[in-house]
Design a binder for these strands. Sequence first.
DNA 1: GTTCTTTGTGTCGATTTGACACTATAATTT
DNA 2: AAATTATAGTGTCAAATCGACACAAAGAAC
Lengths: 242, 242
Amino acid sequence: MSQQNQIPNINTWIDHLQDESRTALSIDCVIFGYDLDSLKILLINCDMPPHIGKKSLIGDLVRNNESLDDSANRILKDITGLENLHIQQVKAFGDPNRHPLGRVITVAYYSLIKIDDHALIDAENRNLQWIDVNKISTLAFDHLDILHASHNLLKQNVRKHPIGFQLLPKKFTLQELQSLYETILGVSFDKRNFRRKLNAIDILLDLNEMREGLAHRPAKLYSFNQEAFSQKLNKSSFKFEI
Amino acid sequence: MSQQNQIPNINTWIDHLQDESRTALSIDCVIFGYDLDSLKILLINCDMPPHIGKKSLIGDLVRNNESLDDSANRILKDITGLENLHIQQVKAFGDPNRHPLGRVITVAYYSLIKIDDHALIDAENRNLQWIDVNKISTLAFDHLDILHASHNLLKQNVRKHPIGFQLLPKKFTLQELQSLYETILGVSFDKRNFRRKLNAIDILLDLNEMREGLAHRPAKLYSFNQEAFSQKLNKSSFKFEI
DNA sequence: GTTCTTTGTGTCGATTTGACACTATAATTT
DNA sequence: AAATTATAGTGTCAAATCGACACAAAGAAC
């Protein structure tokens, strides 16, 4: 019985896949960087009415035959010069009125990078720049919603996975690490308790070097011990959580 | 300068929004229900080659002018008769080869319902039925991936939000509640420690009733105290976490 | 050598966690 | 009616974790 019912259904799909019921699809990327006690993201000038003059996230239309992940990296390369970033999908945004030119669904991604490690190429000449997350109060389209959703997901993930280290130089002090977590999470930690926790997790490598040249006692430098972390991951008792 | 660069960019968009670079977009819903110690989801027969004979999630194409959330609820109503569910977006799936008829992006949603509270209407005569999550090893398309991502998100959310109660009858025993968490999370809890935790959270209403008629000591019945929970939410010290 | 600034460190009490065993209650069986 | 069976309900202890808290050490600047 159902076999016969199914044929019109397929034809309906084939029709729809070729007609106007298709939808424009874009990707928008929130690229987080960290610098001197502030969390920043990459923004460009929006070139689309009625949002001209506002800033927007790094985004463009998805092409046929590229996966969403591939598309995000292609768009990032095209607009910023950044290549092969480790990206994280956030979610899809699909309000019918979110885009002035018509129905455009967008899929949001975020990534974390060390600002100093990546040269930017403003290939489209759109005033590509780093802006402090806390100084952003308006953005084009629904990009402020996208930013908030991405930042919230980042907050969750940064506490459970050792991704914060991606935002610091390879060698960093414990104060710098604490500052990073405080900035991203918007909370403050007790210095001794923070160090106690990091010491317990035991995935930092003491480099026996100092951050020197400052007018006070020099701080010890550490690096993230990826190897130790990977080994600990196998043990079910191990949990990374800040 | 950039003002002039921008005009071709807009025209490119306008072109693309109307040509073949648009993409088919669908929604797929994972509807979780819980019944007698097993977590189940709603599945229907897949009616599309080459996946005919397999089961699939509840899904269809998104229409113009409906938001993603609205679309999910419209599709659920059309295929299952379920209306106005509280739905949660999971993420978008966009592998170019995920669908046999061509490029179709899908956005996954999940929802939780009490099986007994909702009559199903198999409107498309597609053998709509509840299937035990642990007995599902193949599904059409990439629906197994979607199921796993949805189940993982459910695991996270069920521990942090009081949504598990949606899967139990209004009156339930502590053993039933424990069993629910054990089934969804795939872990087991110590009975006394579990009760101690629920007692500390203090959001259950002791109904002074018993689950009677069984050949052993009867268990006390509780219900979720939504009002107490809402009030506690205001206090920053309160945290729901199983 | 005095001052300034930031680093680095330990303890105590409170809270939370995991592990663990026996009695209470009702239905059923004999 | 007594014994059996099955599940409900309960408390303690030791270990681990958590939050709060203050001062000496190190180097640069003056």
